[in-house]
């Protein structure tokens, strides 16, 4: 299995792509979860679908970079809509998210089926963005993912301190004179970039797991932001590569769902067994004194 990873070219490309996706979505997901925006990732990844199809309709190309940009723009518009609905109506975050998620996705579906009904076959393969097909990742896909992901991580590193303050105490950030609104838009944009990277591998439906689960897992092991973000990225990468290797090892194992199961397993193990915060340790801590009294 591991030797395949080293020597099999296709598998290596796919694993590299999934690994990059895992790192980027893990790192940016950490901020999303801390800022209570776990489900925004879900909404934005669904909202990206019309962007992908529209990018194809407008440019006629299936170049990964073009489609990723389309996905990012649509996801971003979806996020703007969510924020606008929350701030101008009495509908709360959950309602706005569900609304945008489902209607944008429906719009994407209309476009997709409309394109598919046309006689030319150029559109073939667009529907892999629904569930993702990591196995179809090519070298140029991975290059595009690395470029967008690297840029996103670089921007995050540049604004690290500001983003950290914003995530923990937005009021304090405002009182320090930081441009809170701009920073918030920046973080959301970076999250959109992370999502647009992952869509090709795991698809719009399962993308949210890659935003939420690594961050939840990492949160259990540490109280420090830096450590949490790095751990989250590592967990994401491990799940990405592990999912690819596992699904390559057995027949009929779809990669996207296997990656999701891997990252969820990491989150579950962390929730149960992480030192201090783990539920199992907690259970022992609560029950031990009682047992001693009984003895």
């Amino acid at each position: 299995m591991l030797s395949n990873l080293l020597f099999d070219y296709t598998l290596r490309t796919v694993a590299l792509g999934s690994g990059i996706m895992g790192v980027v979505s893990g790192v940016l997901g950490a901020f999303a979860v801390l800022r209570r925006q776990s489900l925004l990732g879900d909404a934005m990844s669904h909202a990206a679908l019309p962007g992908i199809v529209l990018a194809f309709i407008i440019t006629g190309s299936k170049e990964p970079l073009v489609l990723m940009i389309g996905a990012a723009v649509a996801g971003w518009i979806g996020a703007l809509f969510v924020m606008a609905i929350i701030s101008t109506t009495r509908i709360k975050q959950d309602g706005a998210l569900g609304l945008i998620l489902a209607t944008f996705f429906g719009f994407g579906l209309v476009l997709l089926t409309w394109v598919q009904a046309r006689p030319d076959a150029a559109q073939a393969g667009l529907d892999r963005y629904l569930f993702g097909q990591a196995a179809t990742l090519l070298e140029r896909d991975v290059a595009a993912m690395a470029a967008i992901g690297g840029a996103a991580l670089l921007v995050l590193a540049l604004f690290w301190k500001e983003c950290a303050i914003l995530s923990f105490d937005p009021d304090f950030a405002r009182s320090m004179g930081l441009p809170v609104h701009l920073l918030s838009v920046l973080l959301t944009s970076l999250l959109v970039a992370a999502i647009s990277i992952g869509l090709q591998a795991v698809g719009v439906v399962l993308m949210s797991a890659l935003i939420v689960a690594p961050a939840v897992a990492a949160r259990q092991w540490t109280d420090r932001l830096g450590v949490m973000v790095v751990l989250s990225g590592v967990f994401g990468a491990v799940a990405g590569v592990g999912g690819v290797v596992l699904s390559g090892a057995a027949a009929r194992l779809p990669t996207g769902p296997v990656i999701v199961v891997c990252i969820s397993a990491l989150a579950l193990i962390s929730l149960l067994f992480a030192p201090r915060r783990g539920l199992v340790w907690n259970w022992f801590r609560v029950n031990r004194p009682v047992a001693r009294q009984g003895a």
Binding site: S38, A209, A213, V216, Q220, L271
Partner: peptide, 19 residues
């Protein structure tokens, strides 16, 4: 369990079961 906020809990559970 206070380890995860509600929105993160939703985002954790349903992709797993669906996968």
């Amino acid at each position: 369990s206070n380890r995860v906020r509600e929105d993160a809990a939703i985002g954790l559970v349903f992709p797993l079961l669906f996968s």
